[in-house]
Structures are given as C-alpha cells and as structure tokens.
Simulated scan of single mutants.
Amino acid sequence: MTGSSNTSQGSEMSFLNHLEELRWHLIRATIAVVVMGTVAFILKDFIFDTLIFGPTKKDTFPTYKLLCKGAQFLGFEGTFCDTQFPFRIQSRTPAGQFSAHIWTSITAGFIVAFPYILYEFWRFVSPGLYRNERRSARGFIIVASLLFFTGVLFGYYVVTPLSINFLGTYQVSEAVFNDFDLSSYIGLVRACALASGLIFELPIIIYFLTSIGLVTPQFLRKYRKFALVIVLIISAIITPPDIASQVIVAIPVIVLYEVSIFISKAVIRRQNKKAKAHVK
C-alpha cells in the first residue's frame, strides 16, 4: 500500500473517528504506566532505599566519590568529601508517606513505560505519513527512548546530587537546622530526572520541526546566542545557583543543540535531494 493511499484513507476518517483512535492509544499508554507503576509500588524498598534516597548517601553514591576525587585533584575538598549530610528527611502529614509511595510509583511507571508511550504515539501518527517517511523514521522510538533514558540518568547522577549537595549543606545560620519534607525532597529528585530526560529530547524535536518546515539550520545558527542564554536559564532553574553546577549541566545541552543543527541540516539535505529527484 502506497503512502498516498494511506493519506487518503486517513483523510476519509471523521474527526470523531480520529478522537476515538487517539482515545484508545491514550488508554493503552495509561495502562502501561499503571502496570509499570504497580511493579514499582511492589518494589518499594528498591525504589526508595536504593534509588530515591541514594543521592543522600555520600559514602556510597558514586557521584560524590568522583566529585571528591576531582576536588582533591584540584587542591580543595569542599563539601563533596563529607561522609554524610547535615539534614533529615521527614513526613509531617498522616498520609505523607503513602502519597509519596503512590506518586513515586506513577513517576517510575512513566519512565519505564516511556518507549511504549512513544510506540503508541507513533502508531497514531504513522498512518498519515508516506511509506518513505515511515521508513526514514523507523528508528524514532529507539533513538528517542535512548535520549530520554540518557537524560534521566544524567539528571539522577549529575543534577540531583549537585542540587542536594548545595541545598543540603547551605545554611543562613548555624541556628537553623535543615529538615526536608518528604514530598519536597522527592519532588526535587523527580524534577531533576524528568526535566533532564525531556531536555535530552531536543534533537528529536528539532528533527520533526525541520521536517515540517518550522525550523532550518540557518535559523538555529542565527539564534545560537539566544539559545545559549536559554540553556543557561534552564540550567539555573534545575540546578543550585552555583556557577560550577550550571556549567556542568549546560555543557551537554549545548552539545545537544549543536547536534540538533547537524540533524536539521541533514533533514534539509534529504528534502532537497527528494525535490530534485521528483523534478527529474
């Protein structure tokens, strides 16, 4: 079946039929999140003791060991080489721990089920594409999932410990002791991981924006300076307000932006080749 026939069949579907199809894709994606979330709910000890509270354990978490060695190599230790944090995590509401368990499980379910969510999205949009377009984007799910998981790992192993180390050791006065609320702490870990995961999807976003003509390599190069400012602002939002942490987070995002320019250029080159072949 050719792409034109697929497109014509898609155009014959009514708006309500499209909504019905979209509804079932969303239902299947939601079921996948719930199933993975249920597994995460059962694995409570691993999710919380190992993953969620892992960045609070300075003596075992690998990032702090690397940062400590790096600081010692540069001639200073700072707070990275401390053996423990001067704060506690507490729950001050009757349903605080149960609520944290539920929402953390849902978040974990979303992260694990992300490739399937992309698959359902792809199943919804692919019938409207030509066969060559579907073939050229065959690796979309794999690449997008790898970028997302890489971003989540970067957020968990880099952004989260930097944020916790800064906020957990910062004091306006020795008379004030840090007692972090459970929901606030989990929200920090969740925001760092998910925000980084979504930011790492930048090349995929640029690919689709270039494919539909909204973005060009010239546009990306022209506004590179503005993009750098936006990257620094985003880095300042998801990291503590120290320059070192912002630079560490900004570097991979800048690299992703440069990769996105290359991807946009490749898309334009492929479109030009197709146009020339069509003219011949």
Rank of each mutant, 00 (worst) to 15 (best):
F208L: 09
K276M: 08
R134T: 09
P161T: 03
L147E: 07
Y116K: 01
Y157K: 06
A227Q: 00
W103N: 05
G10S: 10
V39K: 02
E21K: 04
Y257A: 11
E12N: 15
G197Q: 14
P55L: 03
D181E: 15
P240M: 03
I237K: 10
P86L: 09
Y156I: 00
V143K: 14
I237V: 14
S211P: 06
L153D: 06
N17L: 05
W24D: 13
A277W: 07
Q246I: 00
G213P: 08
A29F: 13
R224N: 07
F262E: 01
E20H: 00
R23Y: 12
M1P: 12
S5E: 15
L129E: 08
V158A: 13
S211M: 04
T79K: 08
T38H: 01
L188H: 03
I237F: 09
H101G: 10
V267K: 01
A250C: 03
S196W: 11
F87K: 11
L220K: 05
A191P: 01
D242A: 14
I117Y: 04
T79N: 14
T50P: 00
R23C: 07
I234W: 15
S136P: 11
L202P: 02
A144Q: 12
K44W: 10
R221P: 11
C68R: 00
V159E: 02
P55Q: 15
I238R: 04
I141H: 01
M13E: 02
Q72G: 11
I234E: 13
F61E: 03
A275N: 09
F166R: 01
H278A: 14
G109E: 08
S145Q: 03
F149W: 03
R224Y: 11
A40L: 09
I263Y: 02
A29M: 08
K265I: 00
W24Y: 10
K280G: 10
F166K: 06
L209D: 05
I248W: 05
L67T: 05
L153C: 13
I233Y: 00
N165D: 14
T104H: 12
I31T: 11
Q97N: 07
A95S: 14
F177N: 07
E174M: 06
V34D: 10
A195K: 06
I31V: 15
A195R: 04
I204C: 05
K225T: 09
G70A: 11
Q97H: 03
S99T: 15
A113T: 00
S126N: 10
N178G: 01
G96Q: 12
T7G: 02
R92K: 07
V159Y: 01
S105Y: 12
E120Y: 06
L22C: 06
P127M: 03
Q171E: 15
S264I: 02
I248L: 12
S235K: 13
I106T: 06
H278D: 11
I111N: 05
I233L: 06
R23A: 12
Y207V: 14
L198H: 09
G75A: 10
F219R: 14
E21A: 12
K280V: 13
Y156R: 04
P217F: 06
G139H: 09
K273W: 12
A191T: 15
G139F: 12
F140K: 08
P252K: 07
L129Q: 08
F208T: 07
I204F: 12
L67F: 13
G155M: 08
I106N: 01
A195P: 00
F114L: 09
